[in-house]
Design a protein around this nucleic acid. Structure first.
Lengths: 150, 150
DNA sequence: TGATTCATGTCAGCATTCTGACATACATTG
DNA sequence: CAATGTATGTCAGAATGCTGACATGAATCA
C-alpha cells in the first residue's frame, strides 16, 4: 500500500477525476440516509431551479443519457415527487414539475448537500474559489471545443 | 430564483461534476477506437507506473470497488495484457504486471489520452495550472477530512 | 406542398459497477 | 498462544447507466 512518488499524481486530469470521485462519495454518504442517490437529488434540484424542464433537458443537466433520466423520472412520478402532463403542450417534450412532496424531500437533501459543499470549500479564500470556478470553466470550454458536437 | 438551495449556476461542486463528465466523455471518445474504456486505460497506466500493484490497490487508484477491478483484471488477464501469479507471494495480494502486449496496448492509449489532457490545458498559463492543482488538492483534502476514514 | 433534418420520449437488451457475503492471510494484542 | 482486527480475493445478485432502435412532433428547405 505504498504511495511512493509517481507522477500520475501530477496529472490534472487524474486529480480532477479524484476530486469528482471524492465529492460524489461524500454526497452519496449524506444522501443515503434520505434514500436518495446523487442523480436523484440532481434531478430534483434542477427542477426546483428550472421548473418545466423536459426529460432530455434534465438528462443533460445531470450528465446522464435521456434514457437513464427517463427511468428515474418514472420512479419519481410513481412515488409522487414529480408530475408530468399526460400530453405534450407543444412538440413531444413533457415539462416536469416538483410536487409539494418533492419540494419537501428536496429541502432535506439540500441541507445535507450544502454541508458537503461547505466542507469542500473550507480553507479556501474567496479569490481561490472564483479562481477555481474560472479554471474549471476554461477546462470545460477547451474540452468541448474539440468535440465537434459528438 | 434561488432561495436557500445550492445554486447550480455558481456551485463549484456542480462545475466539478461537469468538468469531470466532459473529461470522461473526451477520453472515452479517443479510447473507443482502441477498444479501451477509461477504467481499462486507468488500470494499465497504474500498472505501468507502479508494477506489482494488487487488485485492491488498483481499484483504489482507479476509483472503483475491488470487485469491479477484479472483473476487469480477469478480462485483461484472459486477453494477455496482464499477468498475476497463481499463488500470493505474501498474504493474499496478487501482484499484477503488464505483459509486453499490455505495454504496447498502453502506448497507443497514452498518446490518445495525452492529447485530451493537452487540449484541456490549452489556454491556461502555468500559474493557472499549478493553481488548479493546489485548489483541487485542497478540495480533496477537505472532503476526506470529514469522511471518518472511509 | 412534400421531403429532410432534428429533437424528443420510450422500449429493449447489454455492460458496468455496486452492495452483500464469505473464506483466507497476516498483524496486533491480551 | 489464542482472540481480535484489518486487508484481501472472489462469488452472487441487484442496481444503475449505456447503446441501439423506433415512432412522433416540429422546423427547415427545395
Amino acid at each position: 500500500m505504498n504511495q511512493d512518488g509517481v507522477d500520475l499524481e501530477t496529472s490534472l486530469g487524474y486529480l480532477l477525476k479524484e476530486a469528482s470521485s471524492v465529492l460524489r462519495s461524500a454526497m452519496e454518504e449524506v444522501l443515503r440516509p434520505l434514500g436518495m442517490s446523487v442523480t436523484h437529488y440532481s434531478c430534483l434540484e434542477l427542477l426546483a431551479q428550472r421548473p418545466g424542464l423536459s426529460n432530455s433537458e434534465l438528462a443533460r443537466g445531470a450528465f446522464v443519457t435521456r434514457q437513464s433520466m427517463n427511468v428515474l423520472l418514472q420512479t419519481l412520478e410513481r412515488e409522487g415527487y414529480v408530475t408530468r402532463p399526460a400530453a405534450a403542450p407543444v412538440g413531444k417534450a413533457l415539462p416536469a414539475r416538483l410536487t409539494p412532496s418533492g419540494r419537501r424531500s428536496l429541502e432535506k437533501a439540500t441541507v445535507a448537500v450544502r454541508s458537503v459543499e461547505v466542507r469542500m470549500l473550507a480553507g479556501m479564500t474567496e479569490a481561490e474559489r472564483s479562481g477555481a470556478f474560472r479554471i474549471l470553466q476554461s477546462m470545460i470550454r477547451s474540452l468541448r471545443a474539440g468535440d465537434d458536437g459528438a
